[in-house]
């Protein structure tokens, strides 16, 4: 029995080394590819301009209406704060 566990332990240790190795190699390749992609696609593209027409839902709204929303949120927050601190 003890011997048996020893063998499984060895296998587990093996798994530890191989597993961590593969995780690092895999994500390392991904890092390399991501950097490559950013270079090719051009990571410096201005972000606010890009998503205007491409994404109507979610949190990305066109910048004009975002301004309104931000304003609304800020004034709501100020209002709330004043209410709470009377």
């Amino acid at each position: 029995m003890e011997n048996n566990i020893g063998a499984v332990l060895l296998e587990a240790a093996n798994l530890l080394v191989v597993g961590m190795g593969v995780v690092f190699v895999f994500l390392g390749i991904l890092i390399f590819l991501m950097k490559l992609m950013s270079k090719i696609v051009g990571g410096d593209a201005p972000v606010p301009a890009a998503p205007v027409n491409t994404n109507r839902g979610g949190r990305k709204v066109s910048s004009a209406s975002q301004d309104h929303k931000v304003k609304a949120a800020i004034s709501a927050a100020i209002h709330q704060y004043r209410q709470d601190n009377k």
């Binding site: 992609m37 410096d44 972000v47």
Partner: peptide, 11 residues
């Protein structure tokens, strides 16, 4: 840095 929509799509 800001990330472009294209990058997010290719990822």
């Amino acid at each position: 840095r800001p990330v472009s929509a294209k990058e997010k799509m290719i990822f």
